[in-house]
């Protein structure tokens, strides 16, 4: 376990110092090679975690240690300055009626419509996968939230909701047809 921790710290440290190197420093010439080696080191650390704790615990501990090591070096790199605490003018602003309406419409489309579409599409998509039922179902269970999240993101970025809404409803109908087809 100690080897895994040390390896992770050394590797992230390698990425950090290579990142920090500026033109003119001797270190700078090897920047690319160091970063590559450091990422290999991160992978080696992950393997060490897996060797120590088994594949399942090892992967979780590996990704947590990567986050901790990186935050440690980011904290080391912190630039401390005196905080500027000037308050802006306090006003009684409120969202415009148009913005509120757009928000409510987005909520309706991103909520039930996108939810149903993602659910049906996930189930329709797994129908042709050559896996066991449990595997197919779990794959759909993972795909469903990702699809829903991404459709919400699409709706939030869109200026007009009509296009995405038509797309989502069409996709829901198509998926429904596939599911009820057999």
């Amino acid at each position: 376990m100690l080897i895994a921790i040390v390896c992770m710290l050394a590797s992230v440290g390698g990425v950090f110092y290579a990142w920090k190197a500026t033109t003119g420093e001797a270190f700078f010439a090897y920047k690319g090679k160091i970063i590559f080696t450091a990422w290999v080191g991160i992978f080696v650390s992950l393997v060490c975690w897996i060797q120590t704790l088994g594949a399942e615990y090892g992967v979780v501990y590996g990704i947590i240690s990567l986050a901790f090591a990186s935050w440690l070096f980011a904290a080391k790199n912190s630039e401390l300055k005196v905080a500027q605490t000037k308050l802006k003018q306090h006003t009684q602003t409120w969202l415009a009626k148009k913005q509120l309406l757009h928000g409510a419409a987005t909520l309706i489309v991103a909520g039930p419509i996108a939810l149903l579409t993602s659910c049906l599409f996930s189930l329709a998509l797994i129908k042709w996968l050559p896996f066991a039922v449990a595997n197919k179902w779990f794959f759909a269970a993972l795909l469903f939230p990702i699809l829903w999240g991404l459709s919400c993101l699409w709706l939030c970025s869109a200026d007009k909701l009509r296009g995405p809404s038509i797309c989502l409803i069409s996709l829901a109908c198509l998926s429904c047809g596939i599911l009820l087809g057999n």
Partner: peptide, 30 residues
């Protein structure tokens, strides 16, 4: 589900993901 899509969009929308990999300004401008 939203957290997953925020993570994906956050990474895609980050223009200086490598340039600012360890940048950390404390204090100064909020």
């Amino acid at each position: 589900a939203m957290l997953c899509s925020l993570i994906i969009s956050g990474l895609l929308a980050h223009p200086r993901i490598f340039k600012d990999a360890f940048k950390f300004r404390v204090g100064g401008k909020k």
